[in-house]
Design a protein around this nucleic acid. Structure first.
Length: 614
RNA sequence: GGUCCCGUAGCUCAGCUGGAUAGAGCAACUGACUUCUAAUCAGUAGGUCUCAGGUUCGAAUCCUGACGGGAUCACCA
């Protein structure tokens, strides 16, 4: 039985016997004692003074005496102001360590038979992945791992935006200017190859637009539509989209391509498949580098027609209503949202209709009771509306829909803007952090005796740990500032710091061989540094549970860091293999095994691998 | 303008279901490698928790209002 419950029960009994007061275990705060004071757990006595006419100090004294007398494992207490600090007997911590140290799964929950789906990443197929995707991918992966650790059966999915005008731009640019080039012929990573043509399209379009601005047609439009004293340059900046739709020959060609695609024109479809194929191959390589996988991919080209049947049913049941022009709407004003269109007057779907259909399709495919959408916070409103609609449609899974909304990633110089070329490319960034780890390792020379391949493998793990930890340690909801220079830091509050604690355990345990640990039973008095570590380990299952409940990988990151820190401190101050007694040695080996397990589990939940050496 | 999110050390972030003297890391400065990996440890310095009210024995934490930053309010996705 865990110590917090034991204490809570004791307090409940104490209140009843001493004061004839009926309380429940959750009614009073029990926190861990601050480092400056003696004790392990602290009961704040102030709330009791409402019911008991005595000073907080007097109540603390009486309650403390009662607990030491009556409750096993509570050895001592002290009262400072209104705080009752309780000292837990080392015996409890020692027994606890005995129970858990051999369990590599410690911290995780047994399977609970429940199923959750996590959607993450969701890229467009016209550009390579960038820093924003990396945050999305790492959060999605980590949350999915945390749910597995919390006992859930997890399905990972992705929806790929593989249709629309943007893809047509890349296709058109390749057709017009590509001269049959391929990723192979240009030796370019294939998603970057396609992205380059998207950029090329924008460049050619800008050229065309600039030239047009000098035409009489353009002048006439400027004269007619300018606002006040707007100079031509300003005006044409705002007029770009209209130009694309009304006058641009490139724009016209791109729209024609989209129409041809929708009409299933064989040549267009073939080109689309070819270029998307390149993009997918490139994405796969990036996913592979990041160590993430998906169980099923959904494509918008397959799902964009979905949802209409549901809307028809919803019309019958009165969830939706139809205007005279034929468009279909839902009124969500009583839920503090607006009216929202779900079908155009021509009967075609919009974005949200598609999401309605996709949610149902997924439920049919997997029957998950929870679905977590990992999507940036700019879509908060969209998901509020979507979830409200699903609720009103009476879908059985509606209550289990959750939008894990994360903040944008900014650079120290400000927002990432693709037009200004300030986007941080995912592949470049990964290469950069690994390079930094390599330079660092070379300087240290500690891997010199390994084969180049083995060294590379270790260095890859370290570099990626730096990047992943840097991103995932920040609370998802917060907009974060990403400084590439800091992300390659390998010291301090970083992934490699945590890995290093693991490596220290491993290195020492390998040296220890397979010793007899029965002497640990004779170890009876804990050093503070040892107790700190055990108390940390004790928290682990609760941390994972809460991280799942709050969809927050940063809790696991912070916990792993704190555990590593406690171990580093212990390592510095105490010997393990040359401990002062056989009992101490055996105990410390057990402690290190437990730490090693917990660090591996914690890092794994963040998608971070653990090298044996570094 | 409506709705939502954020504001904590020079910088990046914890803490926010109310509890003791607000914590880490980076950057700066001091020390510790004959000893299980120094990618480590110990220390110094750094704060009006944006501001103003309120609730409370007690507020960074809850409430109200301001100020600053961001997102969103498409028959785009």
């Amino acid at each position: 039985m865990n110590i917090v419950n034991i204490i809570q029960q004791g307090v409940v009994q104490g209140a009843a016997q001493l004061y004839n007061l009926e309380i429940k275990g959750e009614d009073f705060p029990l926190s861990t004692t601050r480092k400056e004071f003696e004790g392990d757990y602290t009961l704040v006595v102030f709330p009791f003074t409402k019911h008991i006419k005595k000073s907080p100090e007097a109540i603390g004294q009486e309650l403390g005496a009662f607990l030491v007398e009556q409750v096993q494992y509570i050895k001592d207490f002290n009262v400072i102001k209104g705080f009752l600090n309780l000292v837990v007997d080392d015996q409890y911590w020692l027994e606890f360590l005995q129970d858990i140290y051999q369990n590599p799964q410690y911290g995780t929950q047994p399977a609970n038979g429940r199923k959750v789906m996590v959607e993450y990443c969701s890229p467009n197929t016209n550009k390579p992945l960038h820093l924003g995707h990396i945050r999305n991918i790492l959060l999605g992966w980590s949350v999915s791992k945390i749910y597995e650790a919390a006992g859930y059966d997890v399905v990972r999915v992705q929806i790929i935006n593989d249709r629309g005008i943007a893809i047509c731009k890349s296709m058109l640019a390749w057709k017009k200017f590509g001269e049959g080039a391929t990723p192979e012929s240009t030796n370019t990573k294939s998603d970057h190859f396609v992205g380059d043509f998207y950029v090329l399209f924008e460049k050619k379009f800008q050229e065309e637009y600039k030239a047009w601005q000098k035409s009489e047609e353009a002048l006439a439009i400027y004269t007619e539509k300018k606002k006040g004293e707007q100079i031509p340059e300003e005006f044409f900046k705002t007029y770009k989209d209209q130009y694309f739709n009304l006058y641009s020959s490139l724009g016209k060609a791109a729209r024609e391509m989209l129409l041809a695609w929708e009409a299933h024109d064989p040549d267009t479809i073939e080109l689309w498949k070819l270029m998307n194929g390149w993009v997918y191959a490139g994405f796969d390589s990036t996913f592979d580098k990041l160590g993430v996988t998906f169980d099923k991919l959904y494509y918008e080209s397959n799902t964009y027609l979905l949802g209409r049947e549901t809307v028809d049913q919803g019309l019958n049941s009165g969830v939706f209503f139809r205007l005279e022009d034929g468009s279909v709407w839902i009124d969500l004003e009583d839920a503090k949202l607006d009216k929202k269109l779900v079908l155009r007057k021509d009967g075609t779907s919009v974005y949200i209709t598609q999401d309605i259909g996709t949610a149902q399709m997924r439920y049919q495919d997997f029957g998950a009771e929870k679905m977590i959408y990992v999507v940036a916070d700019e879509q908060n409103y969209h998901f509020q509306v979507l979830f409200e609609i699903m609720k009103r449609l009476g879908e059985p899974y509606a209550a289990g829909l959750y939008h894990l909304s994360y903040g944008m990633v900014d650079l120290p110089s400000g927002k990432m803007k693709s037009r200004e070329g300030t986007v941080v490319d995912a592949d470049d960034l990964i290469a950069e952090v690994v390079q930094e780890a390599w330079l660092n390792s070379k300087e240290r020379g500690s891997l010199a005796d390994m084969t180049p391949e083995a060294q590379q493998e270790v260095i890859r793990k370290i570099g990626l740990a730096a990047l992943k930890f840097f991103i995932v340690k920040v609370h998802p909801k917060k907009r974060m500032i990403f400084d590439p220079k800091e992300s390659v830091d390998l010291q301090g509050q970083t992934g490699p710091y945590v890995q290093n604690a693991f490596v220290r355990c491993s290195s020492m345990l390998n040296k220890a061989g397979n010793p007899d640990l029965s002497a640990a039973r004779e170890y009876t008095t804990l050093e503070t540094a040892e107790k700190d570590i055990i108390a940390q380990l004790y928290q682990f299952p609760e941390v994972i549970k809460q991280a799942a409940e709050t969809y927050d990988p940063s809790m696991v990151a912070m916990y792993s860091y704190e555990l590593a820190k406690a171990f580093h401190r212990f390592w510095h101050d105490y010997r393990i293999l040359q401990a002062e007694s056989e009992a101490a040695k055996a105990f410390r080996i057990q402690l290190s095994i437990a730490v090693r397990n917990a660090l591996r589990t914690g890092l794994d939940l963040l998608g971070i691998e653990t090298p044996e050496r570094m």
